[in-house]
């Protein structure tokens, strides 16, 4: 067991425990703060997965901006504690059954490995099996010479330029939509 695995384990336990507390606290404010804790743990995991820029964005945008918005709304609504916050037990039964099936299904993804993928590709028709397309020089490379931000920025502003520009329209729509919805009278 390497040091990397140990650190990953710490962050993973941190994330799962925080998420559990987030969905079980009756106070909405406590839930929100535990969700922030989960997001910090995920940012740590992103660093371990060599996605340093995504980790920074996770802290800035998610744990910072989005969760502050949530906290504002919780404080704005100023809800008193409801006497029975959780739903009745049949819903609990359904929820835990569904969650168990979902977890089992997703955990089978652990069988996903480069070897198995290569085998599946080798059985595909030739036209679909282009190894360079499936493995674009990803494995075994050292630190990227373009740096942490450069390795995101280069594809973002070349191959993904059009989606990136469309994002700005999406954000504008969100801004206008939020103003129209939240304002009492235009």
């Amino acid at each position: 067991m390497t040091a990397l695995t140990v650190v990953f384990g710490i962050f993973a336990i941190w994330a799962v425990v925080s998420a559990l507390l987030c969905i079980t606290r009756t106070n909405a404010m406590a839930s929100a703060l535990w969700l922030v804790s989960t997001m910090f743990a995920l940012a740590g995991i992103y660093v371990l997965l060599q996605a340093e820029f995504i980790a920074a964005i996770q802290v800035l945008v998610y744990a910072g901006a989005v969760m502050v918005l949530f906290l504002f709304v919780i404080m704005l609504l100023n809800v008193e504690e409801t006497p029975r916050e959780w739903k009745r037990w049949p819903v609990w039964l359904l929820a835990s059954g569904l969650a168990a099936v979902l977890t089992a299904e997703l955990v089978t993804l652990r069988g996903y490995s480069p070897g198995r993928l290569a085998r599946e590709i080798s059985t595909m028709p030739d036209s679909m099996a282009i190894p360079a397309y499936v493995f674009p020089g990803a494995m075994g490379t050292g630190p990227d010479p373009r740096g942490v931000v450069g390795k995101i920025a280069e594809p973002l502003f070349q191959a993904y330029l059009i989606p990136f520009e469309i994002t700005s329209v999406l954000l504008l729509a969100a801004v206008i939509g939020a103003v129209v919805l939240a304002k009492k009278r235009l």
Partner: peptide, 8 residues
């Protein structure tokens, strides 16, 4: 599925 507070 289990929570009733819409913000949560």
């Amino acid at each position: 599925l289990i929570r009733r507070n819409v913000v949560v």
